[in-house]
Design a protein around this nucleic acid. Structure first.
Lengths: 227, 227
DNA sequence: GATATGCGAATTGTATGCAAGATAGGAAAT
DNA sequence: ATTTCCTATCTTGCATACAATTCGCATATC
């Protein structure tokens, strides 16, 4: 496949992994050197990531990893909550044995990770659990949207999951979500997923706002990434 | 601003206006000539549009305007329905006088267009009405998502609105939506918006499926735009 | 001392050239 | 007549070169 697409993946992964943090500059020359290519495919990758909202490409002023304001971040979590609850609603309506099994497996993996207090592992398994729900909606377009937003938020979600006791609470919420989907209760599934996601957003916002005056928050002193 | 961004807009507009139809090839050389620039900014514009899902950029094989399969198209409308109903739910919860007035104005414009049977005008005013609802959600990120998907679907929506009597029915549904939002009834607003949007998707799918064997449907003989 | 101004260096935006893969058309073989 | 294979042509992908703008920093001015 073309370089530009591979580079797009590579840069995106680096951002998700936290190697480039929000606000970091992504200058074309050093990326080109790092990956051993010319600036052209780098530019193409950056522009694509910019179009997906992953990074912020400012004309003539270079690209930076997006730095959503606390408000924007809350809006993103709220949107994620709405999209996930839509997935849950459809999953409750259309659940198949395959999708049920996939969710069950992911849930068990989360359980193990939570029992071991392994938050890195839980982070990965949690992602699988949510992705299983996206797929269970049996609407691949909606699922793609959910994946994309989930990825964009992953940097913030990871931080959030480190909070004390959050793992066990998250796990319990997962159980409740699964139960509602299995019961075919669309409304309950939607509500539970909505709250599950939004609580993360709210906690994160609290954390950002709470820490902001004192310590270093990820968004501190940086501007909104308005379009 | 840079050429690439202007070109992106220009090409997107041309697609929305129907100048380039689904399946049409967007070859770099002719676009470059048409806009009087080199291939470089054209490529950059195309890749951005590809990342937004507007067109389909196939490595080494050029870009075409996306051709969603009927299934995919239905999924897109279903997703639109979920996103719009989320906007409606939030709008019902958070309505301000400003947003109320904006929706009212857009609704009146639709009314006039519908009375005159001017479907082109209604198409434009309908868009304004829906965008007013997106804004009334007071979640600018969610609203952006809604705008983007609305744009992607506009080609199909336009065809749909030409259907007989659809204008008047659409207008009545708008009235019901407004009423629910004003009453602060989140559930009702969400349901009405959901149905309003999905009915379009269903009708369109019916149309595509019905016409497909006989006449020329937009998607006829073309492949899914899978990623 | 603080603010404005201008210059040099660094970075981005666009054009052009070339290499490699895709496509179409025809010739050869079955 | 149909299929397969080969070649000529076209198109895309990447590198390089150059132009245009921004940014940092020193100097000048109030």
């Amino acid at each position: 496949m073309s370089q530009a697409f591979r580079l797009k993946q590579a840069i995106e992964d680096a951002v998700i992994a936290g190697e480039f943090q929000p606000g970091d500059r992504l200058d074309e020359a050093s990326l080109a050197e790092r990956f051993g290519v010319s600036r052209t495919p780098i530019r193409e990758a950056l522009l694509q990531l910019g179009a997906e909202g992953f990074i912020d490409v400012r004309p003539r002023r270079g690209a930076i990893v997006s730095v959503p304001s606390p408000t924007r971040l809350f809006e993103m979590f709220e949107t994620m909550a709405e999209i996930e609850s839509a997935c849950g609603r459809l999953a409750a309506r259309r659940l198949t044995p395959d999708n049920d099994a996939a969710m069950e497996a992911a849930h068990r993996a989360c359980e193990t990770a939570a029992r071991n207090g392994d938050s890195e592992q839980y982070y990965a398994d949690n992602r699988n659990f949510h992705e299983a729900i996206y797929r269970a909606s049996r609407n691949s377009f909606l699922a793609d949207q959910a994946f994309a937003l989930h990825k964009r938020l992953s940097a913030y979600r990871r931080i959030q999951l480190r909070a004390r006791n959050r793992l066990l609470q998250s796990l319990q919420e997962h159980a409740g979500i699964l139960e509602a989907i299995r019961a075919g209760d669309e409304q309950l599934a939607a509500t539970r997923l909505h709250d599950h996601v939004l609580v993360q957003g709210e906690r994160f916002s609290d954390m950002v706002l709470g820490l902001s005056p004192a310590g270093q928050s990820p968004a501190e002193g940086r501007r909104e990434t308005a379009k």
